[in-house]
Design a protein around this nucleic acid. Structure first.
Lengths: 205, 205
DNA sequence: ACACTTACTAGAATCCGTTCTAACTTCGGT
DNA sequence: ACCGAAGTTAGAACGGATTCTAGTAAGTGT
């Protein structure tokens, strides 16, 4: 479990023909479908390969490990979240409000496919992922909170990353059946109000 | 990967004879020793069983899965942390200072056995652990921060849990080689000052 | 002491990720 | 149209966690 993008990876260089792009697409699709019901364990490499109509060896050529496959699937989910946000940006007045908005939107998205979400999140935390989920989410939060107006302090980055960490942890708890959507919302709001509120101005308390 | 405490578990009921207690102890010791160098992969069930001088089947009777074994090992580490804190309580003046103190003490402890720490933390995140590492650490933080003087608000519990989540995430980053001890300290301080500072009084800024 | 339930042991067997092999295709250059 | 490199395939093979089996010891109640 190591590599990130691979030899014939996604949008990146290396994909020669259209059939390779399509193969990759079929693989990702099969993987997501399998994980959607049954979670990680249902997403077995043999099964993915079979369902995608490629040989096991080929699957491993595209994704050197199961983890790489998971990371790729997550990447696609994040793409969707980002474009969703671009389409309809969070409207809240405060930075922490906007951050909560984005996180809860992501939460709802993940809740639609709990098995998939579970598989993906756990796998990601485990992974030696080079393209960090956390960093990407933190960057998104910084942008969305509008904290980076000009100066993107280290402190702000840390705070955004912290909120991301809290969110991930809450998601895990939800997937373990120990939080409801409402729990998460409340808890994220509490954490966000502390972490992201701009103290001089808006205090949410 | 599910169960938590098992049939013949630790201090809990179920352990009939002394030899069983000793067996359990030998297993935990062997597991920790193996994980200390070589990490998760070195801690193979066959090897643990062999080194503990029990049959593979017996190991599985005591710990139904590798995860359960890991959880138990972590439990022991937490015991040690708690008694260390009881021995020498954090002295900082502010709640967030005390929390940082405890977290960094735990960090140093884990850093002494990076392979072990890596194995343990990852496994914990993965586990459907019923005896939540997070909750236990959060409780510890609440106590240590002295936030619960009389009233242990839900908000306080959430904030402590949040700080715990941030810490775990930072640890993971460290284990991936992306944070130094100093990084963690700085980042935890930033998060703690926001999450735990008592706003009316001490502002750390 | 005796019968019996429960724990333990050695080892085979199963499952799944990953690797390896040998033969077959596809593609780009000529 | 032909050649060699790179991509693909079916399937065997390997490694480690987990499960299963049959038989042997240990602890308990009478």
């Amino acid at each position: 479990m190591e590599a990130v993008q691979d030899l014939p990876p996604g949008t990146a260089p290396g994909l020669r023909t259209k059939s390779q792009l399509q193969r990759r697409r079929r693989i990702l699709q099969a993987a997501a479908a399998l994980a959607s019901r049954g979670g990680v364990e249902a997403m077995q490499m043999r099964t993915v390969a079979e369902r995608a109509g490629v040989a096991l060896g080929t699957l491993y050529r595209y994704f050197p490990s199961k983890m790489d496959l998971v990371v790729a699937v997550v990447g696609e989910e994040l793409d969707m979240l980002e474009s969703s946000i671009a389409r309809r940006p969070p409207a809240a007045a405060t930075p922490d409000g906007r951050a909560v908005d984005v996180l809860m939107r992501a939460t709802r998205g993940l809740m639609r496919e709990p098995e998939l979400a579970d598989a993906l999140i756990r796998a990601l935390i485990l992974a030696d992922v080079e393209l960090p989920f956390g960093d990407r989410m933190a960057g998104l939060l910084v942008r969305v909170a509008g904290l980076s107006d000009g100066r993107a302090t280290e402190e702000q980055a840390v705070l955004a990353a912290s909120l991301g960490a809290v969110w991930v942890q809450e998601l895990l708890e939800m997937l373990r059946g120990r939080r409801t959507y409402e729990d998460i919302q409340r808890r994220i709001e509490i954490a966000a109000s502390r972490l992201l509120a701009e103290f001089p101005a808006s205090r949410v308390e």
